[in-house]
Amino acid sequence: MINYFAGVDIGSTMTKVVIYGEGIRAMIIGPTGPEHRKLANKVMEEALIQAHLKFEDLSYIIATGYGRINVPFADRQVTEITCHAKGLHSLLPTVKTVVDIGGQDSKGIKIKDGRVVSFVMNDKCAAGTGRFIEIMADSLGVPLNDMGRLSLTADKPAMISSTCTVFAEHEVTNQLSGGETLPNLVAGIHESVATRVASLVKKLNIEPDVAITGGGAKNIGLVKALEKKLGCPVLIPPEPLITGALGAAILAKEIFEKYTKEGQVPERSKSGLQEAKFFD
């Protein structure tokens, strides 16, 4: 009999669910949205449908990410730092340094045998996060998904000197009016984010292999810029958005098996698959 486990990662921008048995059985990625506290159960329902399982089939559930406390049916909450390390180690075991570029923060994590050795986070300024690129894409009228590809056609990335997102937006529109090409501007935007992220992660004393996760990993222009700033190649897992949810699911499995081995049953959440009631 196979036991199934779930990891729910409620990030600031995207919500991810992974159901794990002897491998990934289902994964769902969707926007978090403003009502995310109420929607965790709906995302889980979708994942269960994809996995052809019932909620009762899940032996243990871990919630992670910024919204982790708002998942009433989760049996335990674990931070995204621990879950990213665990998930990434299962996908790319040689990686010692993880760079996660999310919607509203960026992080660096040093890992050893799947465990966190140290970490750094940028959560005070949008300039080193995916949000910076989103705002600039909006300003330039370029679809977010086209930013990476467009930047690869640049001949000379523009210099974006402002570190504040609001001022940088103004600077970008000024340069556009001054005749700078769109590819050069987009490449400059990626270099600006990569510079901020690299200076954050370098505090960790980077060791290869280095991997990138989060929405930033889906932007090839940003990945190339980051490789340049870090001075080493950067690995990308097959689906860079789910490493946190995957790590949470694997951790759920490990905790469950540890208890079982000791002849015990881990304590479960008493809430079933229901929405959080915080705002009612």
């Binding site: 910024y66 674990v78 931070t79 730092i81 621990t82 465990r115 966190v116 986070m121 959560d123």
Partner: peptide
């Protein structure tokens, strides 16, 4: 919230 999130992650690392 962010400070507490860092503390949570750190405590997990110390536990490990």
């Amino acid at each position: 919230a962010d400070t507490h999130n860092r503390i949570d992650a750190f405590i997990e690392a110390v536990d490990s």
